[in-house]
Design a protein around this nucleic acid. Sequence first.
DNA 1: GATGAATGAGCCTTCATTCAT
DNA 2: GATGAATGAAGGCTCATTCAT
Lengths: 202, 202, 202, 202
Amino acid sequence: MTKNECSFILDAVRTKDEEKKAALFEATVKTVNEMGFASASVSKITKEAGVSPATLYIYHKNKEELLVSTYITIEKNMSRALLEKFNADMPLRDILENVWVAMSDYFIKYQPYTRFAEQFANSPYKTLVNKEMVMHYYAPIIDVLQQGIDQKIIKNVDFDIIIAFICYPLLALSNPGLCSDFEPTAENIKSAFALAWDAIKL
Amino acid sequence: MTKNECSFILDAVRTKDEEKKAALFEATVKTVNEMGFASASVSKITKEAGVSPATLYIYHKNKEELLVSTYITIEKNMSRALLEKFNADMPLRDILENVWVAMSDYFIKYQPYTRFAEQFANSPYKTLVNKEMVMHYYAPIIDVLQQGIDQKIIKNVDFDIIIAFICYPLLALSNPGLCSDFEPTAENIKSAFALAWDAIKL
Amino acid sequence: MTKNECSFILDAVRTKDEEKKAALFEATVKTVNEMGFASASVSKITKEAGVSPATLYIYHKNKEELLVSTYITIEKNMSRALLEKFNADMPLRDILENVWVAMSDYFIKYQPYTRFAEQFANSPYKTLVNKEMVMHYYAPIIDVLQQGIDQKIIKNVDFDIIIAFICYPLLALSNPGLCSDFEPTAENIKSAFALAWDAIKL
Amino acid sequence: MTKNECSFILDAVRTKDEEKKAALFEATVKTVNEMGFASASVSKITKEAGVSPATLYIYHKNKEELLVSTYITIEKNMSRALLEKFNADMPLRDILENVWVAMSDYFIKYQPYTRFAEQFANSPYKTLVNKEMVMHYYAPIIDVLQQGIDQKIIKNVDFDIIIAFICYPLLALSNPGLCSDFEPTAENIKSAFALAWDAIKL
DNA sequence: GATGAATGAGCCTTCATTCAT
DNA sequence: GATGAATGAAGGCTCATTCAT
């Protein structure tokens, strides 16, 4: 049998591996969201993923690494989603509005990922992740904001302040546990952006 | 022996009680901040507090109730701090700026409490707390914002949006893990408030 | 109730503790002898001792410390037994014969302790025990041998050689797994000592 | 393809087999010596040997059989080494001195094998090995000792006693963990033999 | 009120072994 | 023959909680 003849088998095998890894990722997010880090044990996560506890250790060094890699995967995933439709050839307000809408879309579409990331980022696990590396994923957006400051379109204040008004209000609004009344319709998302823009624009 | 005769003893006992309860509170905050909910065990918390594990159960029904009551204590504590200097007899911008500065003062002075509250609020434990009850602590501030909307000083958008721009940017800026570059000087705090005001003002 | 009146209760409590510690000691010896270090798990040892696995950790830091302390206890116990009847006011041959008989008595009476000690001493665990400290238990016997050398009653060879002929043949003979044919009658023990004496005497 | 045509291949394969088997043997000895039976897992042994855990099961039925066969291999190896230079055409004392020196040479040259064998022989694994079979390897030496008894050159005591004075002192002296001070120079080895001979000679 | 001792249940991880390739 | 992936079972240890004192 030539390599070609059995390629479908190889595919099957490779697919299965990726499936297990993906199942562990999803199970980690789901379990941690449902019961928090305090109760999300390896046995519960692997049961949710449909694999043996021992199998986890083929894909991850230990539980900590599983949690960290789950977080990093989400951060990568989200930055990719934001940058996919990113287009810098527009007025700054429009660029940022598009980013704002893309963020909101992501937060809604991937609610569980977002909740996990929030829980992780507000726990001591966060110290295990290199902050610069994560920020690097969002470089184009950061660049465009810096240009806005240089061109005197955006207020010339500490950069963290700009970020704080661009990211966190929307994060809060997308969190049903915090803002249960806010309905994330396209209209509401846009009217929320108006506030963000007013905040940062010069 | 009458109640009077031993009142000084009761006082002594009562004092001791409060001391132990306070020690448990502080130990809970410290331990959870240092190692997260996943590792903050009863034995570690009580060791940090300098009491026996059994003693915890005199003051709290169980571990969950300890965590919840710790969170509620912090919320009460913070709302009291905010409202202490609250004065509604001023222009709305000044009122809110004072609240903003008071919040910042609290976040800085009680960093550990704030970190604990954030960690708690972003975990499933949060569902154990009645949200309305907590919001009620901040009623005067909410009232003043609602009046601002009614008087067309503040944008007439979903109330959650207003909150999102008043609370979360400052919370993010006060989190050294998120905004390590931001220095919370009086000046920086005030320039950050300028953005918040621009965001919500009509 | 005065302290005197309830002393029996305190005794009861203290006794119980010692009982648990003793039960763990015996269970460790028995379990390791029956199935070796490879299979003597904490759960099997504690089941044999009639206590919860968690209870072990009240009395010992961890499994390793349990094994080491069990070995040291045996070594202390044996040296005490040897020195109990030790009497240096006799001709050297008689002194050593008495020690030889006492050793043999101990090996037979406390077969399980001896087997455990042998298994331990021939494993890497042995490196965790301070050799000098253990040798110190047997100081009087060592002294008498050294005097024998000085007085030219015993051959003037490397001290380890003397020890090797005084201890290890008897240890081997007392090991049913090695010398199943040897019957440890008083007569056989004495005739074995004749060889040891001929070996070391000048 | 006939057997002849591919014999060179078979040779290659056979060589490879023997290499893997030998690697497993060495890895077993090394790993058990370093961490004892309690920690010497299949995965650690096979990692040390540079093969997959699954490969172990091609050469051995299971872990127990690996350990037993490792022990038997060592016994065979040692008896072969002792008998290689064995020559019965000499006075008994010289015969035994040669055996003594050969034993010592082996213990030193193959320290790790000796340590493994000691650890094994002092563990319950020993019961899995037929003692007579092992003793049979050393038959010529045993015969010569028996003749010594019959010819009234050696003391007429229980045979186990003779063995105990011929084997165990030297085993102890060759164990650095027991006799760290003893230096196994040719001279020291010979002076130790003098004691053994004095012990058994009539 | 306060505690050290005690525990069954569960923790994270590794075990010895098998199987598809 | 050789292997990496997979696993149920078990490893050592800590958990949250109770109880006798």
